[in-house]
Amino acid sequence: MGFNLDFALSTVPTIIGAIGTTLIATVLSCVGASVLGFTFEMIRRGGGATGLAVRFLIDFIRSTPVLAWLYFLYFVLPFYGIRLGAMTVGILGLSLYYSGYLAEVFKAGIDAIPRGQQEAARALSLTRRDTVVFVIAPQMLRNVAAPLGNYLVSILKATPYLAILAVPEMLGRAFDIASETYRYAEPLTVAGILFLALALLTSYGVKRIEQRLLAAGRR
């Protein structure tokens, strides 16, 4: 039963058709992970008992596999009567998992701002809120843009995990075809090539944006 190129090509439209689901999952997970990661970092920065608890939570998330988190949410949430679609659970899982990494990104982005910036803001009598909005946040965003872009690519490459929860993204569609036709090689090859192309394209785009930001930073 060799590799049938015609059959492989015939699966391309179906698998590409799921690209929307893949991209939506990527973007929503990235937004979720950023919001959650930033919140975690702010709580951790605040210190105290809550800060310590969040510090441990971040370490815990980073020491555990994304697959285990997906199973955890997929099976545990219904146990407590929370019924969500597989796609929602998948996005929640990726958001939670990557929030642990993005918290570190935000931490590094804030730590990289020289102390003198806050002192200058205080010497100019800016309020705490104004200092964050006009001085700290813009510089932090510039610092985190590049690593954030890299994690966007990482999250894209993690979306095939959602196929395991039967989310019909690109790998999921490939498996649908495989189970209907009992041929795995062709749809998986197509999914692999399409994913690699998408990942390379995204990381190329991220690098372009990064260079433009860097050029702007040198103004």
Binding site: G116, A120, F134, Q139
Partner: peptide
């Protein structure tokens, strides 16, 4: 008190953005 003072730092501390 701060409103009455202006401060110039050794390392300038201009806002780069």
């Amino acid at each position: 008190a701060r409103r009455q003072t202006g401060m110039v730092f050794q390392s300038f501390n201009l806002f780069p953005h």
